[in-house]
Nucleic acid binder design. Structure first.
Lengths: 218, 218
DNA sequence: CTGAACACGTGAACC
DNA sequence: TGGTTCACGTGTTCA
């Protein structure tokens, strides 16, 4: 172990709060460790400022206009996010409105009965941020599968898009259904991943290493 | 001020990390202050646990599946909340709902200033009954014009569709604007005529009014 | 060895 | 006066 194990006493003067060394056994080698300690505390201070800036931002974002405890602020944020996710899911389910959560869903539709050969229908949906090649990618993925596209619905809202399409497949074997459903699912998931990869816009604006050019104060 | 101002030296043993008092000048009166100190540290510990529990909850709520820094986690939460608020506001107010009357509209957007070459933006919209080849017809029309498609919004409701798209054009001459606008308008009108031609019989049943999209008006 | 990230205990301020 | 919240410096650990 690389424990430093400095055999010395660090004496904290309770009156002035200064830290003085009582170098026991060796001379003045504390210049380095002192500098290290200082940079350490400064780094920690920067970290604190970063986090607290985000806290301040959250305070501004939360509808409540009272000043809150850090903990209760987080609790408020949590409940608000939960509520928003719930209503978003509701809106996305009932109406076909693309809400905030990216998702892909594949479910079985009603059985096509009586027709020969036997077919079954799927309802697949993809909800994501829009990107230019989304539709062509989607078409390519669908074309690559043994499916017949029955109907498709596309809706957009504020840069987001929800695509629902209904496809039919010939049922060769009963066990082929799940395979097909999962392959549809993975095809859509790939598209969704490609979206989030290409739209990787970083809203991060915190200088990693900068001699503290006055963060912000509001 | 009720400064305690204990005149004593606190000696930190660097080897074991223990904190020992070297009571300077007075005896062992720390029984009370020690208890207070302990309860203080315990309270602070509880506070930390509370906050960190909320951090953990947020980690679970955020869609990202990586484990993140506290600060980045907060940043992520902030951006998600912002996004949610944006789409929520958009959904409640600015929805482009396909209404009862077929129409095509072409209007000028805000001027793009400062960019070279000079461009200007148009907002064109088409609202009609849906038919299968509508989108491909539209795309063909748009591709035939000297326009750059900036953004398009498609929304559907009950078999009707409204398509709004924003295009930019290079402004060669000032008088070319009106020419271009009218050509866009006629292109869309042609598409709309083709739609109503294929669904002509339905027009006689619903001359003018329709059950409108009432459930968007909360 | 430097740096980043965390938990901890403590001083200060505010009911 | 305690009780509670915050900021700070520090020890520790990991990459």
């Amino acid at each position: 172990m690389s424990k430093v194990s400095v055999k010395q006493l660090l004496v904290l003067d309770g009156e002035k709060g200064e830290l003085v060394k009582t170098s026991r056994g060796n001379g003045v080698r504390d210049a380095k460790t002192l500098a290290a300690l200082k940079s350490h505390s400064e780094a920690e201070r920067r970290r604190r400022e970063r986090i607290n800036a985000h806290f301040a931002t959250l305070r501004g974002l939360i509808s409540s206009n009272e000043k809150m405890d850090k903990a209760t602020l987080l609790a408020e944020v949590i409940s608000e996010v939960k509520q928003m996710k719930k209503t978003a899911a509701c809106a996305s389910e009932g109406l076909h409105i693309p809400m905030d959560t990216d998702e892909v869903k594949v479910e079985e539709c009603e059985e096509d009965q009586g027709s020969e050969p036997k077919t079954f229908s799927l309802k697949a949906s993809l909800c994501s941020e829009y990107r230019p090649d989304l539709l062509s990618d989607l078409r390519r993925s669908i074309d690559g599968l043994p499916l017949k596209l029955l109907r498709a619905e596309i809706s957009t809202l504020g840069g987001r898009v929800k695509i629902v399409f209904f496809v039919a497949a010939i049922e060769e074997k009963p066990e082929a259904r799940d395979v097909l459903m999962s392959s549809v699912h993975s095809a859509l998931t790939n598209i969704l991943d490609k979206v989030s990869a290409s739209a990787e816009y970083a809203e991060s604006f915190f200088p990693r290493k900068r001699p503290s050019a006055s963060y912000f104060n509001s």
